[in-house]
Nucleic acid binder design. Structure first.
Length: 455
DNA sequence: TCTGGGGTCCTAGGACCC
DNA sequence: TCTGGGGTCCTAGGACCC
């Protein structure tokens, strides 16, 4: 089974904000260089879609609601959904917050089409009851086909692909439907006169390998024949951790570039340590004013989670890069991840320093050796953000500017749009708040064992 | 129209080693 | 006189995915 939540971020916002139900909603970066994460179906009718620059979306749908993503909310909803999946099988493979594969056979809940369909429909009902949101389900004999099924089921549907019908179903579809065929490979194949999956099958494996290379060609050919033996894998270990920022305006000042790289290194290490791991290879990423992107990396003698070590490596790498003309993005990453204990064996013992493994998993606070110039003022109130007013209760920020902030007072449990009020940005009665659960009683991460099996 | 942020996997060349 | 063969590690870049 493949489960894919429908327009997940936008749907969660509509569930949280009654005034946005049935309206065009766009969730994504709201700065001058932002892109759309998710558009509600109403916004898609205007031509807005994921990965589109938000500036372009605003031209297409000027009256849509534009909201910053609220990952804490999406994560808590995601946990509830994943918990329902976990009740079906020990083999659940999340692909992102809103998508997962489930091996139903391994869970012993379905091994034929009829029961699989029943399990899928019951899951969709459980998700709706638990989160208030809809998800689409694909059921098939392999990951690829289950995923194609959920795509065809959207929105709010279920598609089961009967074993034996796979190849005739695939034949007329675009090659772009196959996993691993993106824009570049799609163009490549089209120039060779291949645009449908059926044409890949006709071309033969040798031709595909000639066009795409050994590994890629063989893989794409197998997929075209509906040969996909990839298992559902739960709990995959991450292989790298990285942090990057695109700046609203290009940075020209080399001193500022160094300061940003140091800050990114600290943030990266913060996440590295939060995951209880250490890394051996430090990667610096630079996107220049003209969008040309390069990476420079350095492999250390031993894994580290020391912010100073990562900061210094990143600083060395930066000195290898010409940034005249300005940079629009900087990033710092760590790969070659090892479990934490490894490292204690190496560098740390000689210093007499308390092993970092014992350190509290508190947010990492590091004083940078480079003075960090004051960051451009971050707006205090971001569109979509939850707030609490001493008098008016729970609401969310509709917009702010010119020293004022506009709030709509409504909660996920209201049936009608709430009232709008405007305050001074520094109104002492107004404070930031945590998101409310979308369904009353179904709290964040709250475990209700047996909820799914109870029927 | 002006292009996010977080990842994974693959390729290819050079260094290095046996 | 005409330059082995194979394996691993490191680095850089590109394609792809959500």
């Amino acid at each position: 089974m493949h489960l894919d939540m429908d327009a997940f971020f936008a749907a969660a916002e509509q569930a949280a904000k009654p005034s946005l139900r049935g309206k065009a909603v766009v969730v994504g970066g709201l700065g001058p260089r932002g892109v759309v994460s998710t558009a509600s179906y109403e916004a898609r009718a205007f031509g807005v879609h994921s990965a589109m620059p938000t500036a372009q979306a605003r031209r297409l749908a000027p009256n849509a609601a534009y909201l910053f993503p609220r990952f804490t909310l999406y994560r808590s909803v995601s946990e509830q959904v994943m918990e329902l999946l976990g009740a079906l099988s020990p083999l659940v493979e999340p692909l992102s917050l809103d998508e997962a594969f489930v091996d139903l056979e391994a869970g012993g809940v379905a091994s034929d089409a009829q029961t699989a369909r029943a399990v899928g429909e019951r899951l969709r009902a459980d998700i709706k009851a638990r989160t208030g949101l809809t998800g689409s389900v694909g059921l098939a004999a392999s990951k690829m086909l289950a995923k194609i099924g959920s795509e065809r089921a959207k929105p709010d549907g279920l598609v089961l692909i009967e074993p034996g019908t796979e190849r005739e179903l695939l034949a007329p579809l675009s090659v772009r439907v196959l996993p691993g065929v993106g824009p570049a490979t799609g163009d490549h194949l089209r120039r060779a006169g291949i645009s449908t999956i059926g044409e890949i099958a006709e071309a033969g494996e040798d031709e595909l390998v000639r066009l795409l290379g050994k590994a890629h060609g063989a893989g794409v050919y197998a997929m075209a024949l509906a040969h996909d033996e990839r298992p559902v894998v739960a709990e995959r270990e991450g292989k790298s951790i990285s942090v990057e920022d695109t700046y609203d305006v290009d940075i020209h000042d080399r001193v500022r570039v160094r300061a940003e790289v140091a800050a990114l290194a600290d943030r990266c290490v913060g996440r590295l340590r939060a995951s209880g791991r250490s890394g051996r290879t430090v990667v610096l990423k630079v996107r220049r004013y003209d969008f040309s992107t390069l990476t420079r990396s350095e492999t250390l003698r031993a894994p580290t989670d020391d912010p100073a070590v990562v900061r210094e490596a990143a600083a060395r790498l930066l000195e290898l890069v010409d940034t005249t003309g300005g940079v629009r993005l900087l990033g710092v990453g760590v790969s070659g991840l090892a479990d934490f204990t490894q490292e204690v064996l190496f560098a740390r013992t000689t210093t007499g320093e308390e092993p970092l493994a014992r350190a509290a998993p508190a947010p990492l606070l590091v004083t940078t050796s480079v003075p960090v110039p004051a960051a451009p003022p971050v707006p205090l109130w971001r569109p979509g953000q939850d707030v609490e007013h001493r008098e008016h209760g729970a609401g969310w920020v509709q917009g702010s500017g010119l020293g004022r902030v506009t709030v709509r007072f409504e909660t996920p449990y209201d049936d009608r749009p709430g009232r709008v009020r405007t305050f001074a940005v520094d109104d002492p009665d107004l404070s930031a708040a945590e998101p409310l659960p979308l369904v009353r009683g179904a709290g964040d991460g709250e475990v209700r064992p047996g909820a799914a099996e109870a029927r």
